[in-house]
Amino acid sequence: MPDPTITLEIFRYHPEQNETPSFRRYEIPYREDWVVLDAINYIKDHIDGTLAYRWSCRMGVCGSCGMMINGTPRLSCAAFLREYYPNPVRVEPLANFPVERDLVIALDDFMHKLREVNPWLIRAHEQPLSDGEYRQTPDEVAAYKQYSMCINCMLCYAACPVYALEPRFLGPAAIALAQRYNLDSRDQGRSQREAVLSSEDGIWDCTLVGECTVACPEHVDPAGAIQRAKLASTIDWYKRVLMPWGGR
């Protein structure tokens, strides 16, 4: 019996050669323990060296290898060929992003949005180093830990139908990361994030479709983070309106 093979249909786009993208089929050996990224690396090494894509760690940590695999946003290092065999596997660049080349998307929009929410610890007053570290109880860590697992893979943006329709939407990962710092007991920067977070293109654009949470490979639950941010902003709003003398 001949060795089993599997077909990959890969999105190809080389703007300097051809303005319209196309799909190319590659038949490669099928290995049960291979993930889609292994298959793409095989193609790059043995069949077509011009194939362009991003990858690094091969273990679901770096967040570089996100692709649309049979129409679903996934990390190609975590999608096993055996999930699809013997059917062909269709590989496309992440949806909702401009394509630079083949499977490589332009990250600029996401990077810009990420910076906008100040995703780092902000202190009103830094305490001197001699005072030691900012200590936290296990409960205080648990309050934000889930949201800190984000690896910036952008699968949630590829999955989000709101982002597909409204590119100005701040998007799931950026909001989840803003929440990650807002919920951190060491952080005092919530008011600095609020203007961007509670703007019309921030949390209020989200209609809680929930596909971001389905797509997230790290179980961050961005949809839950956005709901919690909405509730917190709403409580702030009622406090401001009902108790304008309260200040913040």
């Binding site: 019309e200 209020w204 709403t234 702030d236 009622y238």
Partner: peptide, 13 residues
Amino acid sequence: AGTREPFWWSLFA
């Protein structure tokens, strides 16, 4: 308009 969103959202919720 953005500042009124929490009001409508709270009624929605």
